[in-house]
């Protein structure tokens, strides 16, 4: 069972994570009051917590687990872990940060449980061939000229979702959570060299996939 303090994952900064920081005491969003009620086993507090933080936690889980059923499973595991661990929550981190760690750990645990199979082998030759074949007029110009930023973001997100689990996870941990290679290695329980290699393979696979999708096909 993952526990909340196993990682240093914290919600990336930015407006998307802007849960109000200091609502008045008595307000259901008051984090300190909510924690106290949760620790007392107040039934209504569980529901408030789920309603307030569940949607964001599910979105975090989906970054790692694009299939909705998997993300929902991770969310369930996360809230069960919250219920078990809330008694020990001392406020050393913000409630939102603590919840973020828990759901990331739950998602990673689910990925780990699914990954009891040999790691996806990377077709080095195919990747290298694609990288060699692409000239200076690659897809970045297409992205700049033919797509809005939002369209590009949607395509990139879609292609990341298609990556093998292990590769998607390292990209999320690095590019979204902002963790360093050593932190990623510790979270995934692999060596730093393996984490670095996964990152490089993930980036190459993503670039190749984007190239296939965004590079105009040549006329016959």
């Amino acid at each position: 069972m993952s526990t909340p303090d196993e990682s240093r994952v914290a919600p990336p900064s930015g407006p998307a994570h802007g849960v109000p920081t200091s609502p008045p005491a008595g307000d259901p969003r008051d984090a300190d009051g909510l924690v106290a009620r949760l620790q007392r086993g107040d039934d209504a507090a569980f529901e408030t917590l789920v309603r307030m933080h569940g949607p964001r936690m599910l979105a975090v889980a989906r970054r790692y687990l694009p299939q909705d059923a998997d993300a929902q499973d991770a969310l369930q595991d996360a809230f069960v872990n919250v219920a078990r661990a809330i008694g020990g929550f001392e406020g050393a981190s913000r409630l939102e940060t603590w919840l973020h760690r828990i759901v990331v750990n739950a998602a990673l645990m689910k990925l780990r449980a699914r990954s009891r199979r040999p790691e996806v082998s990377v077709d080095e030759e195919a990747l290298a061939r694609i990288e060699r074949s692409r000239g200076p007029s690659g897809w970045s110009s297409t992205a700049d000229e033919a797509l809005s930023r939002r369209e590009l973001e949607e395509i990139v997100r879609d292609e990341v979702a298609r990556l093998p689990d292990d590769y998607r996870a390292v990209l999320v941990l690095r590019d979204v959570e902002g963790l360093g290679v050593d932190e990623i290695a510790a979270l995934l329980d692999v060596g730093a060299a393996a984490a670095k290699m996964r990152l490089q393979h993930a980036r190459r696979m993503l670039r190749a996939a984007l190239g296939a999708r965004l590079t105009p096909s040549e006329a016959p």
Partner: peptide, 17 residues
């Protein structure tokens, strides 16, 4: 171009997420 594509992909993924 390779560098540009990797950076663009990384930024687009982060922004989308």
């Amino acid at each position: 171009e390779a560098l540009r594509e990797h950076v663009l992909a990384r930024e687009a993924f982060r922004d989308a997420s």
